[in-house]
Design a protein around this nucleic acid. Structure first.
Length: 815
RNA sequence: GCCGGGGUGGCGGAAUUGGCAGACGCAACGGACUUAAAAUCCGUCGGAGCAAUCCUUGUGGGUUCGAGUCCCACCCCCGGCACCA
């Protein structure tokens, strides 16, 4: 009797052997076709939980499958190591972020190794090491050189919890910090920006990539392209230089219905326009909106309010004077920060006008409109009325006609506006790559020369949260000399948003230790773009959009010749427990280390893939995993307990075995291609059950049996790498199973000889008969009508129609 | 409110193009083995009914010879966005 299946013993053994043999070393110069399989690298936190495994195991299985299929597979792993959480955790524990991060990485690497992943660890990257962030800084300089990085003052998102500025993409839900949940407020600050808006239009193009519809929609919404018109309103105000205020509208067809204008409270003209007797009220309103958090300010429940400035502008289209108000429902950051208010055709304007008793004039007639007053805003398209020469045009025609007219008269014209804002990358925190810029009194903003990179992050820092970078308090760091005039100068002390680190890591994997540049262009040409990228959907408008922007930006610098980094994107679901998200506070976290030591990595790998469709996630069940354990033990016995031919071997048993084997190869291969891991496991289980029956009856030759068993082990290898390797060795096959070819199927052999013909009467199942797959329509119909079970349903009725579906069914329609 | 995804046995989930609903597994129940239990093996397992048979994929309609699958209306759950002029 062979040894029992003991995962603990075999897993360690093989992991060591594979590492010694450098089995997973990726060769850059292989003649095989390349396949770049990328999984979003983890943020360095304390521990990997079962959710991480759910992210890493299925791609690992697929990468192993692709290797066996003959591809040269790059399936690397690394760590996203800079950023606020590490710094916060380090502060809380009173240790240095570096120490904390490196300790975590060590643990995470150990955990990732323990699950039997195929990563080539010689390619590991770590974003917080100088050999990496040297090039993050270099890219910053390149973006600056190409006018894609600039310093500017703008109202920015401020998180008082993290004491730093956040990018728009890091503000989530109703305006809270994605890291700490604190309500975000606005501050006017000088910051570094990346000009992602320059790529807004190109980012809307998805023709060349295979991405989930959902992610594309989220990005489209985030970019928020709106077509409309910009319209100039004449301003003639004592003591004010500006002679116009421009607004953006998506409804130029309503321009004759403007009865007031609203400026954002922060608009630069507010102070200049406000009449002396309105000053107190206006200033109080501006002050109040400045202090509100975005949650308060943007709450849709809040009643719209505002203040009249006392000023008027003239609508150039009809010569009417309309009052200028300020209100916080108008955002400075969108359009021109000013809107023309058309209360008859906009809900917000309607509410506002009703509240302050401002006239409401209908300029778009609905088909039902009789000329009376409106009870609510009519926002649908209609026919233009009260609009001078544009009357009787439809909204659509009118919008174009009005815009054309505006352009002709130089009153404005067609315009496009985006919701997306430039990417703020300054962080007033320690744990990040220093922004490689120098401020010189004489020369102004001077980039650090490339030769001086990296600008090292000093080890000693005082992490107290003050709202300013801790680097500012480090004199050795702060004081420097100007690269241009050699005079005394100061360094930029803010650090780079870690989203830049992870916007280019997949380029680094191609040549992870290259020290002459961020990447070796030949290796990038060899490996990029990524063939499949897998990870969580939460990165839809953050990381995934930044990475696309980054790739397009460096393409335009001539560094690469493609604009999309990830050909195919796939988002896995999340794994839950007892219908709830796993979290420490709920106490329902499944700890993988314990499961590995009790059940084994292979069992856990197979179970994670079995519990549900990968894109949907699934419900973790402690008892469910025992089904996988039992299955693997059954396979173990099937392979190791001797096979005995019983009686005469039969031709039929042999063809059956061949057919089932080839059908299983087809199913498993297809499921792996389509990332349908749960049904792949089912198919392997069915095949196991089938082989158990074959073994019991013993009607196939010893060699046929061995062949089928070998195929089963090969198909198991990606899922259960240690288990399959052990059985491969025990059945005296050549090491290593992971270097074998993936089995292929023959469509002819996989073909069914016999089929079950379904007989229906009026669409209801009445009989099934087993027939040759080659049956003709006439034979099938004849058999159906002759069926004993069907007889009763046909008695006394006329068959008015006979439906025959090749190889499937007969439906007799009777009356 | 808008945009995605989803709703199938006690549970997780299967079901190419509209063609045998419930694969595979868990749990449960019955049996074998055992002094006993665990493990293992064999069997049953959507509901009603003694049975023939009938009912059954969130609800209600529709198209079709035939609907889990397509169309219309609605309900519920999950995720995202939400004053964007």
């Amino acid at each position: 009797m062979e040894a029992e299946y003991s995962p603990r013993a075999i897993e360690k053994k093989w992991q060591q052997k594979w590492a010694e043999d450098k089995l997973y070393r990726v060769d850059n110069h292989s003649p095989k076709p390349k396949y770049y399989s990328l999984t979003m690298f983890p943020y360095t936190s304390c521990d990997l939980h079962i959710g991480h495994w759910y992210n890493y195991v299925p791609p690992d299985v697929r990468a192993r499958f692709k290797r066996m299929q003959g591809y040269n597979v790059l399936h690397p792993m690394g760590f996203d190591a800079f950023g606020l959480p590490a710094e916060n955790a380090a502060i809380n524990r009173g240790i240095h972020p570096y120490t904390w991060t490196m300790k975590n990485i060590e643990n995470m690497r150990r955990q990732l190794e323990s699950i039997g992943t195929v990563y080539d660890w010689s390619r590991e990257i770590n974003t917080c090491l100088p050999e990496y962030y040297h090039w993050t800084q270099w890219f910053f300089l390149k973006l600056f050189e190409h006018d894609l990085a600039y310093r500017g003052k703008a109202p920015v998102n401020w998180c008082s919890g993290c004491q730093t500025v956040l990018a728009n993409e890091q503000v989530i839900g109703e305006g809270v910090c994605e890291r700490c949940g604190t309500a975000v407020t606005q501050r006017d600050l000088e910051q570094w920006f990346f000009r992602i808006t320059r790529y807004a239009d190109e980012l809307l193009q998805y023709e060349d990539i295979d991405w989930p519809e959902r992610i594309k929609i989220m990005q489209r919404n985030w970019i928020g392209k709106s077509l409309g018109a910009e319209i100039s309103f004449a301003l003639d105000h004592p003591g004010v230089e500006e002679k116009e205020i421009r607004v953006f509208t998506t409804r130029p067809d309503t321009a004759f219905g403007v009865t007031f204008m609203v400026l954002a409270p922060e608009h630069s003209l507010v102070a200049k326009l406000t009449l002396p007797d309105k000053k107190t009220e206006v200033e109080a309103y501006v002050e109040r909106s400045r202090r509100q958090t975005d949650i308060e300010r943007l709450s849709t429940e809040k009643e719209k309010d505002g203040v009249f400035t006392g000023a008027f502008v003239t609508n150039k289209l009809n010569g009417e004077k309309v009052p200028v108000w300020i209100a916080d429902y108008v955002l400075l950051s969108y359009g021109t920060g000013a809107v023309m208010a058309v209360p008859a055709h906009d809900e917000r304007d309607f509410a506002f006008a009703t509240k302050y008793d401002i006239p409401i004039r209908v300029v778009i007639a609905s088909p039902e409109w009789q000329g009376g007053e409106l009870d609510e805003a009519y926002i649908e398209p209609g026919t233009m009325v009260n609009s001078g020469q544009f009357n009787r045009l439809s909204s659509q025609e009118g919008a174009k006609a009005v815009s054309d007219f505006l352009a002709e008269k130089d009153y404005g014209g067609h315009a496009v506006t985006y919701r997306i804002r430039d990417w703020i990358i300054s962080r007033q925190r320690y744990w990040g790559a220093p922004i490689p810029m120098i401020y010189c009194e004489k020369c102004g903003i001077v980039p650090v020369p490339e030769a001086d990179l990296p600008v090292l992050l000093p080890e000693d820092a005082d992490f107290g949260l003050t709202g300013e970078s801790p680097l500012k308090r480090n004199e050795d760091f702060l004081r420097t000399t100007c690269p241009e005039c050699q005079g005394a100068a100061k360094r930029e002390t803010d650090t780079i948003d870690s989203f830049l680190d992870n916007s280019w890591y997949y380029f680094r994997y191609c040549s992870p230790h290259y020290d002459k540049a961020a990447f070796d262009p030949r290796e990038v040409k060899n490996w990029m773009p990524v063939d499949i990228y897998t990870g969580g959907a939460e990165h839809a408008v953050g990381h995934l959009m930044y990475a696309r922007f980054f790739t397009k930006a460096i393409r335009d610098m001539g560094l690469i010749d493609f604009g999309e980094p990830f050909k195919r994107l796939f988002n896995q679901g999340i794994i839950i427990k007892d219908h709830q998200k796993m979290s420490k506070s709920r106490g329902n976290v499944v700890a993988p280390d314990d499961l590995v030591s009790s059940l084994g990595a292979d069992t856990l790998r197979a179970y994670l893939m079995f519990l549900g469709p990968w894109e949907q996630g699934g419900d973790w069940s402690d008892s469910g995993i025992s089904g996988i354990s039992r299955w693997l033990v059954r396979v173990w016995k099937l392979a190791l307990e001797p096979y005995r031919v019983k009686g005469k071997t039969g031709e039929q048993a042999h063809t059956d075995l061949q057919r089932t084997t080839h059908q299983t190869i087809r199913k498993v291969t297809d499921d792996l291609e389509k990332l349908r891991f749960n049904t792949m496991i089912s198919a392997l289980m069915e095949f196991t059950n089938y082989l158990t029956g074959v073994k019991e009856t013993g009607r196939v030759s010893d060699s046929a049996w061995k062949g089928a068993l070998k195929t089963l082990l090969l198909m198991l290898a990606p899922t259960a790498p240690h288990f399959a390797e052990e059985l491969w060795q025990k059945t005296e096959q050549e090491y290593s199973i992971h270097n074998q070819d993936w089995p292929v199927w023959d469509e002819e052999i996989a073909k069914d000889e016999e089929i079950t013909l379904v007989i229906q009467v009026n669409g209801k199942l009445r009989d099934r008969i087993t027939v040759q797959a080659s049956i003709t329509e006439d034979e099938a119909l004849w058999l159906a009508e002759e069926s004993h079970k069907v007889e009763g349903y046909l008695k006394g009725k006329d068959i008015i129609k006979k439906v025959y579906i090749q190889g499937k069914l007969v439906n007799l329609v009777v009356r």
